[in-house]
Design a protein around this nucleic acid. Structure first.
Length: 295
DNA sequence: GCCCAGGAGAAGG
DNA sequence: CCTTCTCATGGG
């Protein structure tokens, strides 16, 4: 798909299977907000951008970014080089339930997020709700993070790196209202700082199997099965991981008739029916149950 | 006041 | 291996 720079923004043509509401409001990321005119303003990889999409023209506009930024960061972040049409057909083929969920959130894409940020974000996410998770993360960035710039009249801050967070005390995090998760975060930061950020980054290598990645992530304090799966899926390209939270339990029960506390059966079902794209299937189901009052 | 949210750690079987 | 209890916080 072709990208070119026109008066301060990057325009990308022929972008299909794409919807900003679906992508930024399906629970995978926490740092994008709609600005009131169907544009999303947010940050990743130490940059900020404003995105706008026209479904009719299949045109994506990324403002606040150079063409170089787009090719270096946003193309991969938005997973633009993956053919979701093929994946959706494979998932919907023999599963009318999944076909319905895919139709409902047909523009979902799995972002390739920063690993450290995703680790931090999903430690904060445990036993928490999305609006408050967003507040906690923004507050953490503003309290201890570095200012990365401004766009559309807003200031943006990156999350503090592992070294910075490792040196922080619980009281330093008090303004962020993280609750009992604050000590998990500092403990994990110490471990990452100690082992080196590379040991975390390496888990995203293709040579590292999905299972190996999952087990390694669970070594961090505050990271259990659900959070490990989210990190592996949203920042390490392990598309088969199938995070099970309270919503996925509900949707698996209502749509597939699996007992609400039978995690083993849910995992088995996902592996058998969704296979290598279990994580993408999970996102369609999560979006479906969290945005559709009918079910 | 109660229940809930993209759960995990600790303790006890 | 499994089950149960506890852990802050804010919104409904």
């Amino acid at each position: 798909m072709k990208a070119e720079e026109r008066n301060g923004a990057v325009i990308i043509e022929n972008v299909s299977d794409f919807d900003l509401d679906n992508i930024f409001d399906c629970g995978q990321c926490f740092r994008w907000e709609k600005d009131g005119q169907d544009r999303y303003l947010g940050t990743a990889y130490g940059r900020q951008a404003v995105m706008e999409y026209s479904k009719d023209e299949e045109l994506l506009k990324v403002g606040g970014a150079s063409l170089e930024d787009f090719e270096r960061i946003w193309r991969r972040y938005l997973d633009l080089d993956r053919n979701y049409g093929v994946i959706k057909s494979a998932l919907a083929g023999k599963d009318p339930v999944m076909a319905e969920a895919i139709d409902f959130g047909s523009g979902i894409r799995i972002l390739n997020q920063e690993k450290w940020e995703t680790l931090v974000s999903f430690i904060i996410s445990q036993n928490n709700n999305i609006p408050r998770i967003k507040k906690c993360i923004e507050s953490l960035a503003q309290t201890l993070g570095r200012r990365t710039g401004q766009l559309c009249g807003r200031e943006f801050f990156a999350l503090p790196d592992a070294e910075t967070l490792a040196k922080a005390e619980i009281e330093d995090l008090a303004p962020c209202r993280l609750g009992y998760r604050a000590k998990y975060l500092i403990e994990t930061a110490k471990q990452v700082a100690e082992e080196g950020i590379d040991s975390l980054e390496r888990l995203g290598d293709e040579a590292v199997s999905s299972e190996e990645c999952f087990e390694a992530l669970k070594r961090y304090c505050g990271v259990g099965p659900k959070v490990a799966n989210c990190i592996a899926l949203f920042s390490m390209g392990k598309l088969d991981r199938f995070p099970i939270d309270v919503w996925v339990k509900k949707v698996m029960n209502r749509l597939y008739g699996i007992a609400e506390n039978d995690m083993k059966e849910m995992n088995r079902f996902a592996e058998e029916n969704f296979g290598q794209y279990g994580g993408i299937a999970q996102q369609y189901l999560f979006y479906y149950i969290t945005h559709n009052k009918e079910i």
